[in-house]
Design a protein around this nucleic acid. Structure first.
Length: 272
DNA sequence: ATAAACGCCTGGCGGC
DNA sequence: TGCCGCCAGGCGTTTA
């Protein structure tokens, strides 16, 4: 699920149900989801109360009593609530028992998701958060910042926008949308972006992500029920997922290609 | 030094 | 129907 708007939507949804709840215990059924020592994780998260849930890039940040729980959904991570004792489903890999008798369950078909516990007072100074670039709406995200960071980048702009150490939070879908609205070909080298093109990228990054957040994110794989996020932004997508679709600007054909190994949709006529 | 390929995993889809 | 290869909204590591 995860690009910035989906992660923000998940954080909001979880906050409604989790603030003030205490984690009584935790069971882990797929070890590699936990970064670092699994037994220490289980031990340290016990009796921690959830105070606040935010995001940084695509990471969910749970502020606990003395720790911070970081969760990355990667491709398919989701959270569900179940009553204590409900049979564990196939893809539920981490289960947190709460003090109200409910369980928060991390569901992840592909097991790519990650979680880790850090001391609460220094999360931003430590990896992984210390390695992230600016948030999409940070006022320091300027033309001169991007010009500097793109200076030596011979990779396609599409690929460089996915680099979380430059701008944190853009993923494969919104990348295509931002470049479409900016009229920039995904294949152009990042270092060759003109000033006005950098301005467009900054403008539409904010525009697209803000709008997607307002609409609850994008749901492509439809979620069945419960805590699944049912976003509505998929109706707003111009190019992503529309192979052989019609360009909303020129009515030409949307093309699908591979850029840096990622499926990429664009309009060869409108994006130069 | 940089870029492409691979690995991590499972499931759905289209083609034969 | 069954098998096969390909694809999937991510990212760290390895290889060339």
């Amino acid at each position: 699920m995860p690009e910035k708007p989906e992660v923000v939507t998940v954080a909001k949804t979880l906050e409604n149900r989790l603030i003030g709840k205490e984690i009584k215990s935790c069971d882990v059924y797929w070890d590699s989801i936990i970064m670092g020592d699994k037994d220490a994780f289980i031990k340290e998260i016990k009796n921690q109360k959830i105070e606040k849930i935010t995001t940084r890039g695509k990471w969910l940040v749970f502020y606990l009593t003395s720790k911070a729980l970081l969760v990355h959904l990667r491709m398919e991570g989701k959270f569900f609530f179940r009553e204590k004792g409900t049979k564990r489903e196939k893809h539920e890999h981490v289960i947190f028992l709460l003090d109200d008798g409910m369980e928060l369950r991390f569901h992840d078909v592909r097991k790519f998701g990650k979680m880790m516990l850090l001391p609460k007072n220094e999360i931003y100074e430590l990896p992984p958060l210390s390695l992230l670039g600016y948030e999409y709406n940070d006022e320091r995200l300027t033309v001169s910042y991007l010009r500097n960071r793109f200076k030596n980048k011979t990779l396609p702009i599409k690929t460089v926008l996915l680099d979380q150490s430059i701008i944190a939070g853009i993923g494969n879908i919104y990348d295509d949308e931002i470049l479409f609205l900016s009229h920039i070909s995904p294949l152009r080298k990042a270092k060759n972006m003109k000033r006005c093109e950098l301005e467009s990228i900054i403008f539409y990054t904010k525009e697209v992500l803000d709008k997607a957040i307002t609409m609850g994110g994008t749901t492509i794989k439809s979620f069945t029920s419960s805590e699944g996020v049912h976003g509505r932004f998929q109706n707003e997508l111009s190019v992503h997922g529309k192979k052989d679709g019609i360009c909303p600007i020129c009515k030409g054909k949307i093309k699908k290609i591979k850029v840096g190994g990622r499926g990429t949709y664009y309009c060869p006529n409108c994006q130069k």
